[in-house]
Design a protein around this nucleic acid. Structure first.
Length: 887
RNA sequence: GGGCGGAUAGCUCAGCGGGAGAGCAUCGGCCUUACAAGCCGGGGGUCACAGGUUCAAUCCCUGUUCCGCCUACCA
């Protein structure tokens, strides 16, 4: 690749697409397995086929990409397994909508044709999210893309279903389930969102036969009364003691139902009498079983009333409610209506109010699967990060309920079960059996229901690697390294993967679970289309560049905290990208005559920045190891901007000047290239495009920064002496700049500085590096030594025992300077007061650790010393003011 | 109802038993030829409230208030 001079400023447009293509063409994303290397594997949380990239995806995949790129550079065998989820209900909804716009519905074209239509749709629109993830720079092994509905994964699904069925862990039963009347399917408990809804609590009188008296029940859903099979009261309830065992008449239909007593009923709620509708309420269902009440279905799968509702038959459930209430009122049986807020289940896909229904469905028995999945977390075989999610996990797993896995839709894995019309038995096998296993009859039909999408997702960590076949990838990468996902699907997905992994692979699916936060808007609101507060990641990437966008997400990803994203932050980090761009540009413009090699003459600044680079390498690596993404970003930001750019580059300028010593220049060039190279590598996982582009244009070895080695901390390169000396020089420079700033002296004015040291040695160090101070503090001259005398008309700072005076002959405003010193003294007094109090405390001296005491004593004497010096200076200033007649 | 998390600068957030931090915003001074998407400097906080533990608390414990979130069968 030919080097090019960088443009004057960072412009992401021209570089992102280009380098992504380069990586693809070079096959750098591809998983390569080499013996003797550690393995690192992430299976992607599969995006929905219907999806397009939102902030959650952007965050989730940025973090995964950071980990994968880091491990790839560290020399691991790496696989980031990509794939897509068929999203049963969501996809079916999309295609149904399409059909309806053409004037069809799915029942008219039939299941087979419908499924074909979905595949057609997938071919056209299914690739959207893939393209978008590539735009984000995701370094998945794109050649290994899998789809939950493809052949291999479907085999895995069948295999698992059959084995669970054979073990008795899958069963079919009549049970109360959550029914979505719009999607026309059963849903698992997790797929129902409960929301507070303002409704009413209706008090309805159920009369005794041949009596005007009766029992008043309270309900939020009067339309379900046609399915009532009893009225229940608390056995302790004195009001109803005599009624238990009697019968009441169901209003509007006149059917008789018994009054029963059960302690489940809360005397204090409503009227203390509860209507029992086993076919339409999960609790009532339980009570129904307990008392053998039978099931009367009043509402059908479309949400309309059944013949059991008598004259209301065929009415929509809400229309029926309205009409029934009016009729009850006419009959004076509606005793009271009070407004009441309660929570109502909604379909998580289409937001329709869920109807609890009794229906024949397939279930997975969970308790025996859950137990080992609890243990692996307890034993620490799988770590959840941040760990506080463990409690939530245990809570759910310990109270786990059976999982309803059948869905009455057409898009999904059809349940591999065949019903025999002759003997009524079920045959569950891996492939079309042809005959009934029980009676050998040929009159069999496959179950129409399909499986919950999460059933196939639960197998994801091994099905994508080839299971049930034995493959090299499966051998190498299972258990995978880490699962990176949002906490919102901890139960939906993560827990189920653990259970299935243990069950079918005999091993955990991953070692770590990193649960990241939700991305919210800047005021902490969940982003949603209806609120109109969504920030579109694609728009952000276009506007500010992918790298700054990724960096922003990374910098905001603190463990256990939600992310409040504002566009301002992205803009800010674009400035950071520009800074890196320009620092690199500076280096490239100063490489005349550069030849790589160990410098013969290192300056203090060279030693210092190499030392800092080494430390940052250690810290960044450590942050990654602990999933502290925000710390990683912060460390890199600080190092690049405030150490490399603000200090090292400025200090190197002298050495690069045309008239500078050749050896100095060589050392500076070598250092600049080294820091740039290593600094870019450290940054690459977060900002892949920018770093690749720059890296390709500086002296480098290797094909791509993507596969350049990850920098390694080397204890030998620690240089605490350089750090110490630089810190002192930096503080001196800051001290002089501070005076300039506070005194409002323009940067154009060159100053004279006089530094009085306490010992000769320090003076020598300062003099040896005076060029840094002269240049960065913009001095004309600098003198330094033990014997220095402060000029009368000068402003002074005390730093590390040094008395730094800036001569301001003729320009010093004595009043201003005395104010400045007084301010400084006031601050000192405050600090000293605290310290004195502490040191005067006998308990502190005796009980605090001795190093703390020593430190505080040292600080105290340092500050006292400083105070003394400042007071003397203030005195002379005051005297000067008096002499000049100022007050 | 149960559980979890949060309350730190104007904003968004780190930190966490011994000297209150960052980015952005703000104010003052600068076109100092890598960068005005920049440089230099400044101001700004009883670390929600009340107790307790400790030589020492923003940090640990208890309680209160307010905000999120998860979870649950009160009709």
């Amino acid at each position: 690749m030919e080097a090019e001079i960088l443009e004057r400023s960072y412009n992401p447009e021209n570089i992102e697409d280009r380098w992504f293509r380069f990586w693809m063409e070079e096959g750098l994303f591809r998983n390569t397995i080499r013996e003797g290397r550690p393995n690192f594997c992430i299976v992607i949380p599969p995006p929905n086929i219907t999806g397009s990239l939102h902030m959650g995806h952007a965050l989730n995949n940025t973090l995964q990409d950071i980990l994968i790129r880091w491990k790839r550079m560290s020399g691991h065998n790496t696989l980031w397994q990509f794939g897509i989820d068929h999203a049963g209900i969501a996809t079916q909804n999309v295609v149904e909508r399409q059909l309806s716009s053409e004037g069809f519905d799915r029942h008219r074209i039939g299941q087979e044709r419908f499924v074909e239509r979905v595949w057609e749709w997938k071919k056209e629109s299914g690739g959207t999210i893939t393209k978008q993830l590539k735009r984000l720079g995701a370094s998945c092994d794109w050649d290994r893309e899998r789809f939950t509905m493809d052949e291999g994964l479907s085999d895995a699904v069948k295999e698992v279903f059959v084995r669970l069925y054979e073990e008795g862990l899958i069963y079919r039963a009549d049970y109360i389930i959550n029914w979505c009347p719009r999607c026309h399917t059963a849903l698992s408990d997790l797929e129902v969102n409960y929301e507070g809804v303002k409704g009413s609590l209706y008090h309805i009188k159920y009369p005794f036969p041949n009596s005007r008296d009766g029992i008043v029940v309270a309900t939020t859903r009067p339309e379900t009364m046609f399915g009532d099979t009893a009225v229940a009261v608390n056995p302790e309830d004195k009001r109803y003691k005599d009624s238990v065992g009697m019968e009441v008449m169901l209003p509007l239909t006149g059917r008789r139902i018994p009054v029963i007593a059960d302690s489940y009923v809360d005397q204090k709620f409503g009227t203390g009498a509860l209507k029992i509708t086993p076919a339409h309420d999960p609790n009532d269902f339980e009570i129904g079983i307990k008392y053998n009440l039978g099931l009367i279905k009043a509402i059908d799968e479309k949400g309309s009333m059944t013949e059991n509702a008598g004259p209301y038959k065929g009415l929509d459930r809400y229309k029926c409610r309205k009409k029934a209430l009016k009729d009850l009122e006419d009959q004076k049986l509606l005793v009271k209506e009070e407004s009441y807020e309660h929570s109502v289940g909604h379909c998580y896909r289409c937001h329709t109010v869920i109807e609890p229904l009794v229906s024949k469905q397939w279930f997975v028995k969970m308790s025996s699967l859950a137990m080992p999945a609890i243990d692996v977390i307890k034993r620490g075989e799988i770590r959840i990060i941040p760990s506080h999610w463990e409690a939530t996990y245990f809570e759910w797993m310990n109270n786990i309920r059976d999982w309803c896995i059948s869905r009455q839709i057409w898009w999904g894995h059809r349940i591999p079960a065949w019903h025999c019309k002759d003997c009524g038995q079920i045959t569950v096998v891996r492939s079309e059996p042809g005959i009934c296993k029980h009676c050998n009859g040929r009159n069999i039909e496959q179950e129409e229901d399909v499986l919950d999408t999460w059933f196939s997702s639960a197998l994801w960590p091994f099905s994508t690697l080839g299971w049930p076949h034995s493959t090299r990838e499966l051998d190498t990468y299972y258990p995978t390294s880490v699962m990176v996902t949002g906490f919102d699907i901890l139960f939906f997905w993560v827990a189920r993967m653990i259970m299935m992994g243990i069950k079918f692979m005999g091993d955990i699916p991953f070692h770590d679970i990193y649960l990241h936060a939700l991305v919210r808007d800047e005021s902490g609101q969940k982003m949603s289309k209806s609120k109109g507060n969504v920030i579109d990641p694609l728009l952000m990437m276009e506007k500010y560049g992918t790298d700054p966008f990724r960096f922003t997400l990374t910098a905001l990803t603190a463990q256990g905290r939600d992310i409040c994203l504002s566009e301002k932050r992205i803009e800010g980090y674009r400035h950071f990208a520009n800074k890196i761009w320009n620092a690199s540009r500076f280096v490239m413009l100063n490489l005349d005559g550069f030849s790589s090699g160990k410098p013969k003459k290192e300056s203090l600044a060279d030693r210092w920045i190499i030392h800092r680079l080494n430390i940052v390498t250690k810290d960044v690596t450590c942050a990654l190891e602990e999933y502290r993404f925000n710390d990683m970003a912060g460390l890199l930001y600080q190092f690049w901007w405030h150490e490399f750019c603000d200090w090292y580059i400025e200090m190197a300028k002298d050495a690069l000047a045309p008239d500078a010593d050749t050896l100095d220049r060589q050392a500076a060039q070598e250092t600049l290239v080294t820091v740039l190279d290593q600094g870019l590598r450290l940054l690459h996982p977060v900002m892949p495009f920018l770093t690749e582009h720059i890296w390709q244009n500086i002296p480098h070895n290797g094909k791509s920064i993507m596969v350049a080695s990850w920098p390694v901390y080397d204890k030998e390169r620690d240089d605490p002496e350089a750090e110490k000396q630089m810190t002192m020089l930096m503080e001196i420079i800051r001290g002089i700049r501070n005076i300039r700033g506070e005194m409002n002296i323009s940067p154009g004015v060159r100053l004279k500085a006089i530094i009085k040291t306490q010992d000769q040695e320090t003076g020598d160090i300062i003099m040896r590096h005076s060029r840094y101070i002269i240049s960065l503090a913009r001095l004309e001259t600098m003198e330094c030594g033990v014997e220095m005398v402060r000029p009368k008309a000068s402003a002074t700072s005390i730093i590390q025992g040094l008395e730094i005076s800036v001569s301001l002959e003729g320009v010093l405003n004595f009043k201003e300077e005395s104010e400045r010193l007084k301010k400084e003294l006031k601050k000192l007094d405050r600090d000293l007061e605290v310290l004195h109090k502490k040191l005067a405390n006998e308990d502190f001296i005796t009980r605090a650790p001795s190093d703390v005491v020593t430190k505080e004593k040292g600080r105290s004497s340092e500050l006292s010393e400083k105070k003394k010096k400042l007071e003397i200076i203030l005195k002379t200033i005051t005297k000067c003011m008096e002499d000049a007649g100022l007050h």
